[in-house]
Design a protein around this nucleic acid. Structure first.
Lengths: 339, 339
DNA sequence: CTGAAAGCGCTTACAG
DNA sequence: CTGAAAGCGCTTACAG
């Protein structure tokens, strides 16, 4: 290719200074309308490409926001990412995505990259075991952080997530109303705030109903479709299997339903199942999945807005906002209670 | 925060020049070992953060590779993205993801951003209707492009994708062997090379078997789970419904199976179904889905390698490499042929 | 309304 | 083995 076109190329072609060209391209009112139009036309004709590195070196604003989650492929993040994307788009921020797969070192190297690129901010669903110090390091280096989905003790930053304990309570209450007295919980781990909260909501729900928790009702671990599928075996191996199951997530529930079907047990008929998240697939599954809607799009939108406000100069705050979840009743919990 | 630490901060602290510090941090053999160690220690202690914008302004290498696909949430891209990610990781390239949602202007603005950031390359699954000129614009501005999954006439760049026509042929052949003589195809559009190729494979398959194609066997459009679900209605409305269905993708097939179940038709019993892509869920679905494995991880890996080679200085080539697909027989095609 | 000049934080020949 | 200086392509006071 020919010599790259830069501000000075345009300036020379028109007999102007680079200062004027720079101002004109950014629609500064300091430049006369006629001049501005001439400059913009020339820029277009010459195929000028704005060099953001050079600009951001000067202004220390990059227009980049990092978004880092466990796994972008997980539909749980679908709504969240979608609303973050549209919010950032509107403010002409480029958003760069990253999976950390719950690997702390991947997360760290992504944060490092953002710092090196002079990114303007980070929206993070922190990896398992993220120490508060990691968040502070970013903040101390002028990278504002907003947490989503999971929160971290002592991180001192703003966070947005669903009220997981309350939401899981809704699920349990509903099953109790249907007459169930033996309710399992499958999936999730205490290593995340989400896992702890949802488990707490489950245990509280049982307590409210005066049901005594049995340790073998709790199958920990599964957080995705495949492990949900595999957990069907463990569930069916329980001596007297519970009549109902609350799952850590819809993905776990959907995998579990596949697993139970294969084991000859009919979800929604032989056993009641409730998921969590209300992903798109829940409504069309066989049977349609009763679940807890988590307000994900609100989480995404508010996280993005909070970040944009901080970029505008608002002070950092450090509380976590809980979005109120709601129950979506469908057919998967239609099992007759049998005990 | 305090004044930002830069090369010169370290240089001053140690009584050295920035040149030496710069070389030392990049492990140049020009710097004495002792000096290098002192420098690295100081950098760590001072909390030095490398400024990539400044460096890349000078070197015109950014270490950034863009990856842009229709929708990162689509599990079809799962394997592809995973192998691209690990390949780029190993070469210390930061990869930034973007969805274009088949919106040309979104794709263009992403390419623009990459150009502005001085990105080193782009791996692209082009949006519907992407003109060859868009690809050439990138190439002319020193942004090498590699295409995946979909190809574009006359783009003049390297591409990698599964052999879609051949793969769909495998699916049809298998159904014919099972005795089916009326086979529908659901999903996909002629606006993408993938859609055209898979449809061509379907039609050729019918021809090979001496089956005359009926227009009402072809339900165009669906490319995702939800629209696959909805297409069940259209299928069941056919006067004498075909005994077998090949789907544009696993997602379409899985949605369709949900839809058929709800309509009281048992997939794999009342009607044979074959998907395409062999995503993880296919193996655990109810019933397990017969499908065509597309070699996605090979696509991702080879696309990333091809790009890395070009960054190394290899000349651009322009042929498309077809990865050979293979059939995975499971239970969803176990329907008895009835005509 | 427009221009000349400094500077953002690196890297890279070139000297020594 | 180390240093002084130029330059990557912008933006931003400051002058005029």
């Amino acid at each position: 290719m020919a010599q790259r076109v830069k501000l000075s190329t345009i300036a020379e072609a028109l007999g102007l200074s680079t200062a004027t060209v720079s101002l004109a391209l950014r629609d500064s009112p300091l430049v006369a309308d006629v001049t501005r139009d001439r400059i913009k036309d020339a820029a277009r004709e010459l195929g000028y490409i704005y060099n953001r590195r050079a600009a951001s070196l000067r202004t220390s604003r990059s227009g980049i926001v990092g978004v880092c989650v466990h796994d972008v492929m997980n539909p749980f993040y679908g709504e969240i990412l979608k609303s973050i994307e549209s919010e950032l788009d509107r403010h002409r921020q480029t958003f760069i995505l990253c999976n950390h797969h719950d690997d702390l070192s991947k997360q760290r190297s992504f944060i490092d990259t953002l710092l090196q690129l002079g990114a303007d901010g980070l929206i993070l669903s922190p990896a398992l075991g993220t120490p508060a110090a990691d968040i502070r390091l970013a903040e101390e280096n002028d990278l504002p952080v907003i947490l989503i989905a999971r929160t971290i003790e002592g991180a001192g930053v703003r966070g947005f997530r669903g009220d997981d304990a309350y939401g899981m309570g809704l699920a349990v209450d509903h099953l109790v109303e249907l007459g169930h007295r033996s309710i399992a919980m499958i999936g999730g781990t205490r290593a995340t705030s989400t896992g702890r909260e949802r488990e707490a909501g489950y245990l509280d729900g049982l307590k409210r109903a005066g049901i005594e928790f049995r340790p073998h009702w709790r199958i920990e671990g599964p957080r995705e479709r495949l492990s949900g599928f595999e957990s069907a075996g463990a569930f069916l191996a329980i001596d007297t299997p519970p009549t109902a199951i609350v799952c850590f997530s819809d993905l776990v529930a959907l995998g579990l339903m596949y697993g139970l079907s294969r084991g000859g047990v009919r979800p929604g008929v032989d056993v009641a199942i409730v998921g969590y998240d209300d992903i798109e697939e829940a409504a069309i599954a066989t049977p349609p999945l009763t679940t807890v809607s988590n307000g994900q799009s609100e989480v995404g939108e508010r996280a993005a807005s909070a970040l944009l406000e901080r970029l505008q100069g608002t002070e950092a705050a450090e509380h976590t906002t809980l979005i109120e979840p709601s129950l979506k009743v469908r057919l998967s919990c239609g099992a007759k209670s049998s005990g």
